[in-house]
Write a protein that binds this DNA or RNA. Sequence first.
RNA 1: GCCCCCGUAGCUCAGCUGGAUAGAGCAGCGGACUUCUAAUCCGCGGGUCACAGGUUCGAGUCCUGUCGGGGGCACCA
Length: 551
Amino acid sequence: MTPEQLSTAIVGVLAALTDDGAVTLPDGVPTTVTVERPRQKGHGDYATNVALQLAKKAGTNPRDFAGLVAERLREVDGIGAVDIAGPGFLNITVEAGAQGEVAADVVAAGEAYGASNTFAGEKINLEFVSANPTGPIHIGGVRWAAVGDALGRIFEKTGATVSREYYFNDHGAQIDRFSSSLLARAHGRPTPEDGYGGQYVDDLARAVIGQRPDVLGLPDEEAREVFREVGVEMMFDEIKQSLHDFGVDFDVYFHEDELHRSGAVEKAVERLTELGNTYEKDGALWLRTQKFGDDKDRVIIKSDGQGSYLSGDLAYYLDKRNRGFDRCFIMLGADHHGYVARLMAMCSAFGDEPHVNLEILIGQMVNLLRAGKPLRMSKRAGTVVRIDDLVEAIGVDAARYALARYTSDSTIDLDLDLWAKRSSDNPVFYVQYAHARVASILRNAADLGLAPESHPELLTHEKEGELLRALAEFPRVVAAAAQLREPHRVARYLEATAASYHRFYDNCRVLPMGDEEPSDLHRARLLLVAATRIVLANGLDLLGVSAPERM
RNA sequence: GCCCCCGUAGCUCAGCUGGAUAGAGCAGCGGACUUCUAAUCCGCGGGUCACAGGUUCGAGUCCUGUCGGGGGCACCA
């Protein structure tokens, strides 16, 4: 019996009580009720607070209401005991047989276990990273690479169709500065005042020369164009490669420049003008963002006739909507949070619903520590930590796990020494080790010719019960992670489930010892182990972290 | 000045969107391997949930304010 089934059963009881006139619920019977795993041992396998929630509406007190529910709930198949506790909680114990079914259910579902239809039919657009192609991806962009991709996997698991998109800001002044910097360094001249510094600029300049040896002989104006085209293209490739090595591949790499050249920007601006949300002032065209909650109105066409940065975003947003995405996510670093209000206003200006059609997720900063001391970074000095540096220091699995393990709302301090450790201090190894241990048992069982079998009623050990309940929790955790846009819930869940497995392993012998004759209990436990493997592997996969067979 | 995020055990953080006696890991101390991976498990200690009000049967969680830390407030991208 899973929490969902229990919830359904309780709803059934409530419906029966209303039908009989035993209780009256003015707002009707709820479609789902909260079923949680009590923190406290002795409070049953599951607990619900329905009585506390509904008693007032039913015109009675919580304990009486709980009594009515308990009486009927005890009759339900698979329910072992129902106790009323405290102010009116219902503590429910599930029969071993009903609980043990979970192992077979998980194994039957296999890779699909954890899936749901929470977001079935939804087309979700995820825009993240989108670092400028003026340098390698550094630590600022890497958080969303890990979390955004994980969120995509989670949405897919809950039934959505997901497009991962990277928006290349390859239009405007900073690309000019970038190409000027390349040109300067190619000639051995100092980096321009507002240019880009660092070793990678020199390397890239040389690479461009390697591909276009004639470039040094060209006049500066023409040479700059070559550096712009070839240099930016090379930077694109490097960024894509870094992300690919990080396990993140985007479905769409969208170029801002394209929006300006294709007339998409003009069309988007026309649309907003038709809707009465633009006006001219000081030779520029403004969007009435203040009307929709922004601090002030924003320029979309500058007085020099060029589109502002926002104009590209307008056109891109419209493009996504026209491609059928009803939910567009943009994931930004905390240093861009000031941009949220105008993007939301833009969404409203198009007649869309902010926070529904457009959601903006803000990820706080990531600080790297080594030996407990912050790594000082300077973009100017070129001492930024790049995504590749992070991978080199701690590996892809640890990097992705470490970044996805915390809520995006808080800044994180990642201690590189800790995450590089191959020991239990390191949460990713704790979870992966559990998976390796599971895999080892399954290998040994295969060698013994022992096959798993379903004997749910035999899984009566306390640690078996805890593990079964943990496994049953997985679909709810995935759904909650999707609904709250919080992938870290999956990581935390995996750590708890790994702990539950380790405890089971310590208390319950799975394989026959020595010459011992295999029993149904061995086979039943083996099925539980197989189910655990599926949950750990599926969960790690949602985070883009590998599930090793051996460690 | 205005806006966003954070403040929970010595440290790093959870807390299932208002529930029961606030939980993990690390660090400290003490235990457990002749047989499935000890990269594990078990036990002990450790708290004014920053502070002050408010909302209600009930607040770490919601509201207001204060303090502290971080990040922002362009016809730059």
